[in-house]
Amino acid sequence: MKQEAAATTEEALRTALGDTFGGAWFDMSAGRLVVGVTDVSKIAQATAAGASARVVTRSAAQLDSQVAALNAREASAPRSVTGWYVDTKANEVVVTALPGATAAAKSFAGRDVRVVEAEAPQPFLRGGDAYTIGSSRCSVGLTVQGGFVTAGHCDALTGSAQPNVGTWGGSSFPGNDYAWVRTRTGIALSPQVGSVTVKGSTAAATGAAVCKAGSTTGWTCGTVGAKNQTVRYPQGTVSGLTATNVLCQPGDSGGGFITNAGQGQGVVSGGNTATCYFQPLGEILSAFGLSLLRG
């Protein structure tokens, strides 16, 4: 319940603090939300709302603007640069690059970023999983009225094939990584991810606990990392993803992310051995006008 309340508090303070809001994250050890503020006089306002406050140099808007500037130059980025995002706790922008490519990443992004080396991310898609698309398979995400949401690359990278459980209702990849499947008559839809019943779609704070259900690795859990992350897959760039340290592998694509309190978070996009990215659920529902099934 503390993590659910933190998500509500974060949104309220984001609005109330305006240009002085410096991002927020959930401190698991302390069990409370931490909010960055660029104006020391705003500390009392943040603490009055139930959060801890930390003075930071850059506002969330400034950091997001820096990410947007990199997004606008994405086409000129070297192939060794695999993405970028805002590290809220460190109050800085981070650029990820392949091992040994730090200098090239710095040259592209400029000095005012931190470069982190990491394995190349891949969309999770392979033959053999929860639902099939031609000779390939992916994982069911969260159920909606008439079907379920899943990853967009499950459609885009499998040609013209239709899912064995229905038809594509719509998809987007690259740019985004979301899709939904309109299931055929007779298929029962349950408002669950794993054994957790879906109650809503409130976005969890950075640092909060989250789990995912995928047909390759099953039920795995971890914490929410950087949000609004840009990831450069070999097949195309996707923006607006959320990072986690949850275990995911090929075949988990499209699988659902959820909190223990039943708040749906999104669907598996891709990642590497250290990171699993998900496409946030709210954007998917909004893009297609879908209604989430709830228990």
Score class of each variant (00 low, 15 high):
115 V>Q: 09
174 P>W: 03
248 C>D: 06
190 S>R: 12
58 R>E: 09
236 G>E: 03
35 V>I: 12
289 G>P: 08
77 A>F: 03
141 G>N: 08
190 S>N: 15
79 R>P: 01
270 G>L: 02
134 G>M: 09
158 T>W: 07
258 I>Y: 03
60 A>I: 03
229 Q>K: 08
103 A>W: 03
26 F>H: 07
92 E>I: 11
155 D>I: 10
175 G>Y: 05
174 P>I: 03
237 T>N: 08
122 Q>S: 13
50 G>N: 06
192 Q>F: 10
72 A>Q: 14
10 E>F: 03
26 F>D: 00
142 L>A: 15
133 I>S: 00
274 A>Q: 15
225 G>D: 02
203 A>N: 12
44 A>W: 08
200 G>Y: 07
159 G>H: 09
16 A>K: 14
8 T>C: 01
277 Y>P: 00
11 E>I: 05
27 D>I: 12
204 A>Y: 04
285 L>I: 10
125 L>W: 05
18 G>W: 11
23 G>M: 10
34 V>Y: 03
170 G>S: 07
101 A>D: 14
139 S>H: 05
219 W>P: 00
284 I>H: 03
12 A>M: 14
222 G>R: 04
266 G>L: 01
122 Q>L: 10
214 G>K: 04
246 V>F: 01
196 V>E: 00
269 S>N: 08
4 E>Q: 12
59 S>Y: 05
29 S>T: 14
60 A>V: 07
251 G>V: 04
288 F>R: 07
132 T>Q: 14
160 S>T: 15
271 G>I: 03
150 T>F: 08
115 V>A: 11
191 P>N: 07
49 A>D: 04
114 R>V: 15
57 T>V: 12
289 G>T: 12
98 L>F: 04
